[in-house]
């Protein structure tokens, strides 16, 4: 049996890394005594796989993981949401759990795009609007990065599904961006830096991950998944 869990990462804990979050979940699964399946061999590892890594420092309302169980659950799947949240550090909470069908693809394969919000400290809506237009009007946004010791160039422009000014706060403007994740996940920071290398970003938050199927966008959750709002799920 495989479960897919959606969770949030908010507040101070956003400064932990993707690997740190993986360890938090392994400990939480053991705390709630979830019958997680383990790999064989000399160094057994729990069979847990995480989707696209969230950059350290970003918040998220839409993180996902898949966990394989060695045996079926005793109780209903939805009871896991508050139990897991209580076993997780403050700021990391499960918000939905669903059982996957046999043969369901991995998050890495399935997810096609993510929606992000990006704070631009000190920017007015005019500045933000100009930035958005420059990105959308660009024929190409080429970046060079190092991969396995060699420079690789990418055009990021095709990965931009949408980019809008979502609003302003006293601190500045907020952009909303939907960015593709195939063939690789483009991060909002590198997209904006491709245009303006010295740009300073405020809080960056992933709000959704999407699967495109039959011309529509879906969240990567099975249809019968629980969808408990995380605020009520907190037990601590």
């Amino acid at each position: 049996m495989r479960l897919r869990v959606r969770f949030v990462k908010l507040g101070k804990v956003r400064w932990t890394s993707h690997r740190d979050v993986a360890r938090m979940w392994e400990r939480a699964f053991r705390r709630v005594r979830l019958p997680v399946a383990y790999t064989g061999g000399f160094s057994p590892r729990p069979k847990v796989s995480f989707g696209l890594a969230l950059p350290t420092g970003c918040e998220s309302l839409a993180e996902y993981l898949d966990v394989e169980l060695a045996s079926d659950l005793d109780g209903p799947v939805e009871a896991l949401v508050p139990r897991l949240s209580a076993a997780l550090p403050t700021g990391v909470d499960a918000t939905a759990v669903g059982a996957l069908e046999a043969g369901a693809g991995s998050l890495q394969e399935l997810v096609t795009s993510c929606t992000w919000t990006v704070e631009l400290p000190g920017a007015g809506s005019g500045d933000a609007g100009r930035l958005v237009r420059e990105v959308l009007d660009a024929g190409a946004l080429v970046v060079t990065r190092e991969r396995k010791g060699r420079p690789v160039t990418d055009d990021l422009r095709p990965a931009v599904v949408s980019l809008t000014v979502a609003g302003t706060t006293p601190a500045g403007a907020v952009l909303e961006a939907e960015l593709e994740t195939q063939p690789r996940g483009v991060r909002p920071g590198e997209l904006l830096a491709a245009l303006e290398p010295s740009i300073e970003l405020g809080l960056v938050r992933r709000t959704h991950q999407w699967i495109e199927r039959d011309g529509a966008r879906w969240e990567p959750l099975p249809p019968q998944a629980t969808d408990a709002p995380h605020a009520e799920a907190r037990a601590s």
């Binding site: 918040e59 704070e119 907020v174 809080l203």
Partner: peptide, 13 residues
């Protein structure tokens, strides 16, 4: 709309 959520100072009294 987007603010750093800051639950710690208050929650762990």
């Amino acid at each position: 709309m987007v603010a750093v959520s800051e639950p710690f100072t208050l929650a762990r009294q």
